[in-house]
Amino acid sequence: MRLSLSSLAVLGLLNVASADLHQLIVGTFKTESLYTLEFDDAALTLELIGNFSANAASSWIALSHDKKNLYGTSFTAATPSFVSYTLASATDIIYNTTLEIGCNSSAVSIFAIASSEPPYAVYGCPFVGASNCGAVMSVDENGVLSEVIQDYSYNTSSGVHGMAFDSANDFLYSADDSGNALWTHSVDNTTGELTFVSSVAGPVTGADPRHVTVHPEGQYLYVVLEGANELAQYSIDTTTGIPFFENVTYPLIPSGSANADYWSDEVALSFSNNYLWATSRARNTTNTGYISAFSLSSNGSIATQLFLTPTSSSGGQANAVAPSTFSDEFVALTDSATGFVEVWKLGAENASAVARVDIVDGGCCANAVWYS
């Protein structure tokens, strides 16, 4: 399957890479390490330049607004916990502290996101089946995790796997994988604490929202449906912040494929917000996952699904996509089935892997963040 714009249309919208070196930091599922990679956008090479012995295996990592701090899940800890590092550079990583949150001690921390607006709070959620809660963590004047200032609840059947802010950080949206729902909370811009606004059921039974992102214009929210293996577009009521489904979905696996063989994963906006990337994973190593990109209109509505192409592997627990922060052309893709990170390049009618680093340590690779 391939749905595409004309070659000239796509190439005309792409940002040209700046012929520079860029660093990525990569987390892991099982091994207590953080890896730093360097990508040359002219030579199209990717190299491992740093291996930091971390204080936790982080299944998800997130940068602070100024990229001076890195926050991660403590994925193998006995109770849900989050870890905080200071970044002097992409390879100079300094451990600061670990915070244990006060909800659902039987679950594991799965996701973290940092606010880009004062007071720059960090939000985390645990996940194993029904984990039904989340936490708001404050930071000190240096951006280091300070204390848990709020434990808040979802439904008893909930298991949130991903979260996203609107561009003003007025609302936080939670993808409830176990509870098949989307949650909206308003954000107190003084304390960072959350107030419940709404819970909206997934579009169909078993859709299972996993990850979400919001267009900066604030009119659309995009949701990866892990169970339905689709990307769903929701409109947002700009007064209330509540998303509503208007029956707009796109496939993340080929037509005729069995849903049970796949579990879709991640969605993220490109550098310019003109494109949207999304991925699916295969549940066994005999199949590959898939990567797709979408062109967006100026208000954020999806214009066209450009392609749906196989990834290099099943993706394992990952196939997490991380668009570069310097060009629409490049996106990092992680794999935990064998352990590697690839950089893919968006072309006129498709995308392809142009660089790769294998990191076979028994736990890599979870997600990646672009430091530069």
Rank of each mutant, 00 (worst) to 15 (best):
A368W: 06
V136N: 03
S292C: 14
I291K: 14
S255P: 03
G227P: 02
S255K: 10
I236H: 00
A164T: 12
C125L: 13
S270H: 07
I25K: 06
F39H: 07
T79P: 00
A88P: 00
G363D: 03
I61N: 05
C365G: 06
S18D: 11
M137C: 06
F196P: 09
T288L: 01
L48R: 00
A332Y: 01
A366I: 01
A303K: 14
S186F: 08
L99R: 12
F196K: 07
T205E: 11
Y234E: 13
L182H: 01
Y262I: 07
A56K: 07
T288R: 08
W344L: 04
Q233K: 11
V83D: 00
I242S: 06
Q23A: 07
G124N: 08
T36F: 08
L70C: 11
L308W: 02
D20M: 09
A268W: 07
V343A: 05
S81Q: 07
N51P: 07
E266T: 15
L296R: 10
L14F: 02
E147K: 15
L182T: 10
V321K: 14
G363I: 12
F340I: 08
F39G: 02
A181M: 10
L5D: 04
L182K: 03
P216Q: 05
H211Q: 13
S297Q: 15
Y290N: 05
I253E: 12
P310E: 09
N104Y: 08
Q305G: 04
N189Q: 15
P119L: 10
V128I: 03
V248R: 15
L269F: 08
V369A: 14
N96Q: 13
H22A: 04
F307R: 09
S372M: 11
H161W: 09
A348W: 14
W263V: 14
E329R: 15
L145W: 10
V204S: 13
L333Y: 01
L44V: 11
I49A: 15
G227I: 07
K67N: 15
Q150C: 13
T36V: 13
P254K: 13
I49R: 15
A19C: 05
D170H: 02
L13A: 02
V128Q: 06
A17Q: 03
G362Y: 03
L252T: 13
T249Q: 02
V10C: 12
S18F: 07
A54Q: 09
T45V: 01
V139I: 04
A268S: 13
M163R: 01
H22L: 07
G206A: 12
D151C: 04
N350T: 13
A228D: 09
D358Y: 14
T239K: 06
D170E: 13
N229W: 11
G202D: 02
D361G: 10
S178E: 07
S115D: 04
W344T: 05
C125G: 01
A57C: 02
A107E: 00
P203N: 04
A366D: 09
F330D: 10
